[in-house]
Design a protein around this nucleic acid. Structure first.
Lengths: 200, 200, 200, 200
DNA sequence: AATGAATGAGTCTTCATTCAT
DNA sequence: AATGAATGAAGACTCATTCAT
């Protein structure tokens, strides 16, 4: 066949992501994944040592994509404020365009995360580290007056995550337009931060 | 005995909460709950039709407590701005003092929530509705200039949830002090909102 | 029904013994046991925590029976030589009449035995200890001249075990009559020991 | 290369023996063997039709070595009594120096042995046959007065096996020195037999 | 109000083996 | 001579739930 075949490994990851997103972590099962793909459950073990490894791979890939996506967003952008905005919006956009991948990053319970290799955890903070450095640039340039850039970065990240997760968990009032809500929220988050610059 | 006994029903709920908080939803099992209490698994079914009902009760109770807690916080408070602050801080404080209860509200996946009776959902929004009404008061009083109080209320709520959940999921950098992080974040969230009032 | 019912627990033990004897340890499976009895596999877990516990119970019961059987054999017997003979023959007879039970005691690989509670191990040596004490009596009475009664006891035990296990493992030439072989062997073992008395 | 390479076939047998000895029969798996060697599981099937064949080969080889070892021990020895002693000690020594090989001979359950080709079984009795013939020599020479040399041979063999297997199965009291125990036991076994000669 | 007995469906995982290459 | 991909059957064990008492 001339069709570009998708490897079984890739199909397993895809299907896992799909199930994880639609049914939640609790009901993700090797058998179900295999059945959905139309392959024996045993076959999964040819590509992933066990369920933990499969899930870790899923997390790792998502984190990597998010990080890369954020990094690319600031490439070529010089102005600090613009870099700041770029990071925030690329975070939001990633979540919007890759909801399953975004969810996976935060879904798995910390109990299972305990088994997640620590070095990979560090990678996961690449995006956050970039945000922190931008904030520090802002301080240097006299644009911001913050004594705790690390806390500031985490605060922004936490707010963004809150907004995104409320949308995804379908806990938003049905009368509210998703996109409008996101836009309003991001604006508010930014303003809550920038106020400290402009008003000073 | 004249001692006020804790009913089995209450003990089941308590234990479920404990397990849900410590081990996550996936590993909450009727048998474990029963064993922990020292009662037969069958006994749980005397008080709860099935696992879903048990969990729904858990959610309902938590939501109720949170709502009540928020309502009480504004009792006797007249000033709109102060009412606004009271709501936000009572939300945060509830999460801090009742982490298991708070977590439960957001823990269970929406798939399972689909089976959750809709009328109960409405109750869940009592706290939010109060926030919305305070915002509307602000607008009426000329303190705020917002055309979408509902979105505004949700935005604040989403941000608060983000902050709280980052803390609970232990995804905060270990060098950051929890309380300081929360205080900073809440301040920022409020400022992001109040800016629209004060600067006008 | 007026029939004396055999408890499921007992039937599980019985069936396990049967399989262990006929098919060996490797192919003993919870499912098979359950199927043979005509009960769900889950039911076994109502009576035994897990496979290990089931097997340990099997061992424990066999060991207990063997020990008791040996102890009873010397009851009321005064003469040391006769006590000595009684022990040996009761050991042999137990193996002959309860082949499955005998086999179980020695069947399970030491790896699995490592998890066997040590206190129960001590019980297992009751029969052996009796043999040792009889030998020591013999020495005191001047009937035997042995400096190492412990080794002597173990030696006899090892020989007896060898004879019995050869018979059970069906490695005996088909032309040889089992009973005759056993009788001859026991005689020889005794003589190998008693020589040290009589010839002195 | 002129180096004498160890064939894959040989490496498979070696590794199987190692696992069989250390982990017991139950946990001997084709995959584990292959992994240990660093070869694909499929490769084993190039040399052995299936697991049964592999194990049968293992048994066959061990039996062959034991037989050869016993045969060599009597080469050039003329005196019947000395030949008798040589056989016994070579049996013991083989077990001591090749514990894995010795164990294999007796390890696999008779159920699986049923599928073992009968002609190979006969080979297995070469060592035993030699012992029987020596005993018959003794009778001819007037050294022994036994009417059943076959039974006698089996009796000795059974006792030896008992002693060896008690040692290997680590069921010996830890206070007892292995070598001393073996020496004492062998002596006793011999005496139990020779008594019939010398005292007559 | 509470329980012991029981189960079918499901969990992850391992196994020996086959087949096309 | 060797392998990677695949699988059906089986392993131990857990789960929510039911039913008779």
């Amino acid at each position: 066949m001339s069709e570009p075949e998708i490897s079984l490994r890739e199909r397993i990851l895809e299907t896992s992501r799909k199930f994880l997103f639609s049914d939640g972590y609790s009901s993700l099962s090797m058998r179900k994944i295999a059945k959905e793909i139309g392959v024996s459950a045993t076959s999964i073990y040819l590509y992933f040592e066990n369920k933990d490894h499969l899930i870790h791979t899923l997390i790792e890939e998502s984190v990597e994509e998010l990080s890369t996506s954020i990094e690319q967003s600031v490439e070529g952008v010089e102005d600090t404020i613009k870099r700041f905005e770029a990071i925030i919006w690329s975070y939001i956009r990633f979540a919007q365009h890759n909801p399953e991948k975004y969810q996976i990053i935060y879904m798995v319970h910390s109990d299972r995360m305990a088994r997640y290799p620590k070095e990979k955890f560090r990678k996961a903070r690449r995006g956050y580290a970039l945000l922190e450095s931008v904030i520090m640039d802002g301080i240097k340039e006299g644009l911001m007056e913050l004594d705790k850039p690390m806390i500031a970065a985490y605060t922004i990240w936490a707010q963004l995550h809150g907004v995104v997760s409320v949308v995804f968990n379908q806990r938003l009032d049905s009368r509210i337009d998703r996109d409008e809500f996101i836009e309003e929220s991001v604006e508010q988050i930014m303003q809550g931060f920038l106020i400290r610059i402009t008003t000073t």
